[in-house]
Nucleic acid binder design. Structure first.
Lengths: 138, 138
DNA sequence: GTTCTTGCAAAATATTTGCAAGACG
DNA sequence: CGTCTTGCAAATATTTTGCAAGAAC
């Protein structure tokens, strides 16, 4: 993906496109799995941890990415789909492989409507399936 | 619940019923919400954090309780249903209220079968719905 | 006496914030 | 100049482990 497209993605979510943010976004775009703060820190090793942290928070707040708590002890982040605003309608499952500890978005599988109890209001969800991924299961 | 019943619960899961473990189990049994290590520490304030930690790990390994990562930054624990062995068949949703930060098991709502991709093996899951609970939503 | 459990202390891991320097407009 | 962003450092929060004393059998 070229820089112009990345810039557009940021601006569409009202995020000022700085060099750092473009790098982080590019990195996230290249991934097929959800990544942790440490993953990013190790890949963009010249970037500071707190900058990355705040970048991710900004991205998440503006719904460019979503976070996943997969039980690994580290929060993972992944890019949202183009039109996603991370509402209850945009739900998808995540798969966390307990062998390789990778976490993938299963975007092709939408979560069926959930009939939550009366009085409860659903805003978002964190759906993580745990097991062994196809790659580790050979 | 009396001590004999609590003891039976532990022995049924091959856990030696010590005084500490009975206290922790009793506390967990009394809760209508999932509790964190800190919650237990504050309630059983004479008990040591690491003892409680190891007690919970033992309980979890032997499938007396299950853990929930609700994104609060703290792992929460809740008692399994009587015949639950926390396999994929025993799945239920959890509701995490972002106002009061409480997390409840929605045991009445079973999770529909999930058609995960070929080659993937599902072992367990962490299903957390986030929003506002009935109590906070008044 | 051997094994399991517990308590104290400290280590390890992750997240989050304060503050000042720098970039941007 | 004023606001936003970044980097360094340190604080905070939570989980996890080492080790020795004690309890259980």
């Amino acid at each position: 993906m070229n820089d112009t497209k990345l810039e557009n993605k940021l601006e569409k979510r009202d995020i000022k496109p700085t060099a750092m943010r473009l790098l982080v976004l590019q990195f996230l775009t290249e991934q097929i799995k959800a990544v942790s703060l440490s993953d990013i820190e190790n890949s963009l090793y010249y970037a500071d941890r707190s900058t990355l942290f705040r970048t991710l928070k900004t991205f998440e707040k503006n719904k460019l990415i979503h976070s996943i708590e997969d039980g690994s002890g580290q929060v993972k982040y992944a890019i949202c789909l183009e039109e996603c605003d991370c509402s209850a309608q945009d739900l998808h499952y995540h798969f966390h492989c307990t062998k390789c500890t990778n976490t993938f978005c299963l975007t092709s599988l939408s979560v069926p409507a959930i009939d939550i109890p009366k009085g409860f209001v659903m805003q978002q969800a964190n759906m993580v399936i745990k097991g062994v991924c196809a790659n580790c299961n050979q």
